[in-house]
């Protein structure tokens, strides 16, 4: 009998494993549902999370110890039960009342709980996989001294500033900033626009010189993301500050300035270029004729 139990596990352990698996599945699916914005997938995820919540609730009612073996943290089992219940109630509420304050708060609360559970679950699962025999230190911790309190204040202040910076609209608390690096999603067509600036010298014969950020003494970022798009999109406008920067630079005097914007596209796995050039009016008093004079040419090329 014991050999049988060892081979297949006891009925209690099998039940606990089933509950654990069910809880993990529910949390992961609910979390994916919280961040889902793919219409064809969101419905399936929502249905799966509702189903898993129902199974988990049934498992809870069948088990005499409830969720206790799953979550040792005090009140954690009640929070998981609340998550289950909110998920079970939330879906019918969403179906009945769309765009409602109650439905919004239930969904918001559920999403927050799902994030919390995923973060907790990641740490717990990592412990289970990578440090299974590791337990908390049994030696008595050192007594709380004044230096600990002082350092704790610094720790809390630094963590608090960093956490608060994540919710600021403008990152003005450098070095405490948020990191939304490349966070927006893009869909097809895969394309981007790149700008370049050239000057035609007054020499005879004229030469084409690239006007770089370094030559203008500008930050690369400001040059590419602010100056060039502005020059290209409004070639007829008199760009006083640009004219001044050009005069102050070590670049030769120019007869004409040309802003170039190239669309780069991925078509059938190949990179395709569509350049467009506009001539800039650097005259301080441009008229309507200058707008029309802004030359536009378009050439297609395949790399």
């Amino acid at each position: 009998m014991r050999a049988e139990e060892r081979r297949h596990g006891t009925p209690e352990s099998a039940s606990a494993s089933r509950r654990r698996l069910c809880a993990a599945g529910f949390i992961v699916v609910r979390w994916l549902s919280a961040v889902c914005n793919v219409p064809s997938l969101c419905g399936w995820l929502s249905a799966a999370s509702w189903l898993l919540a129902a199974v988990l609730a049934v498992e809870l009612t069948r088990s005499p110890v409830g969720f206790r073996p799953l979550i040792p943290v005090r009140r954690g089992s009640r929070l998981l039960l609340l998550t289950c219940a909110l998920n079970l109630v939330g879906s019918p509420v969403a179906a009945v009342m769309s765009e409602n304050a109650l439905q919004g708060s239930i969904t918001g609360g559920l999403d927050l709980l799902a994030w919390g559970w995923v973060l907790y679950g990641a740490v717990a699962a990592s412990h289970w996989f990578w440090s299974p025999g590791h337990t908390a230190a049994t030696a008595a911790p050192p007594r709380l001294a004044a230096r600990h309190v002082l350092v704790s204040v610094v720790v809390v202040a630094v963590l608090g500033l960093q956490a608060a910076a994540l919710f600021k609209r403008r990152p003005t608390w450098w070095p405490f900033i948020d990191y939304p690096l490349y966070s927006p999603a893009h869909t097809a067509p895969v394309q981007t626009r790149h700008y370049r600036l050239h000057g035609v010298t007054r020499e005879d014969p004229p030469a084409l010189v690239e006007i770089t950020a370094d030559a203008l003494g500008m930050s690369w970022f400001v040059y590419h993301t602010q100056l060039l798009p502005r020059l290209f999109d409004r070639p007829w406008a008199a760009h006083e500050d640009f004219r001044r920067t050009l005069i102050e630079s070590r670049l030769p005097p120019f007869r004409a300035i040309m802003a170039e914007a190239t669309w780069y596209l991925i078509e059938d796995g190949r990179l395709v270029e569509h350049p467009e050039t506009r001539t800039l009016a650097l005259d301080p008093s441009p008229g309507p004729a200058d707008r029309e004079a802004a030359e536009t040419s378009s050439i297609g090329a395949v790399r």
Partner: peptide
């Protein structure tokens, strides 16, 4: 912050 903002802004489309 970097990972969660991708999921919150871009979602699974990211």
């Amino acid at each position: 912050s970097a990972g969660s903002s991708k999921l919150l802004d871009g979602g699974l489309y990211w």
